[in-house]
Amino acid sequence: MSSSNSIIPSRIALVSDAPTRLVYDTVWLTTVGNPWKPVVAPPADSLGIAAALIAELLQSAHATIVTDRTGDHLLMPLQVPTPPTDSLGLALIDQVWAEPGPQPIRQWLQYLASDDIDIYSRVAEHMVIAGLMRRHEHTVRKRLRQRNEVIYRPVESLVADAPMHRLRRWLEQLEEPIAASDTFLMGLCEAVGLETALYRHRSDAARERAEQHQRALPEAQRVLLGRLAETVSTAATSTII
């Protein structure tokens, strides 16, 4: 009894000390399940991670979203003195600059979520280096062949569960303002199909509050969430007959 009591404060400290960023939280939300929150199926999980990476570029003012003559929304890189501080952001902004011109947001989401890119593994490797994930290799037999498969597990399950608990707590505390990044995450959860898990046992007032905050997001982030919802729903309906 006494030993478990001594463990709990250290686990809580792990949660409060863990590095948080939009893309990490999105990985926790979409790829680590628990009894109350299912794992999000492909390609919605990868699309969510892709949207979080782009949102980080928007937040750090390394890129913005512009509208072309046809009403399409394009991702445009911005000239800033300092590049993104981590390899994920740096790799993405390099790719954005390498394009001959601004490309539609929808195409960026589809490209980053494609199997060729394997965005989940890229971000998960990053999280391994940050000490948030463990990398496990094991052999599986598929179609009469043995192959090595890599899976990533959270080092601390409380850290992985923290974002959903945090978002749901925001919805309970009607007086406190919701952080902008968490407002974005709420929109992201809705877009990838986690709406039920997010709003379970929450009042209509909480939902209205979340909608109000989402309407107050910077327009570029609202567009990004709209395009994410559009791409997920296209993926949900386009390949069925």
């Binding site: 986690l194 997920v232 069925i240």
Partner: peptide, 28 residues
């Protein structure tokens, strides 16, 4: 039919619940 109901749910012409995807299968 599911695609129609899903699209109409997305547009909120019918209840928005119809416009949700399943997180487990990414299907309407």
């Amino acid at each position: 039919v599911a695609r129609y109901l899903f699209a109409l749910g997305r547009e909120r012409v019918l209840p928005a619940r119809l416009g949700r995807t399943s997180p487990r299968t990414c299907a309407p």
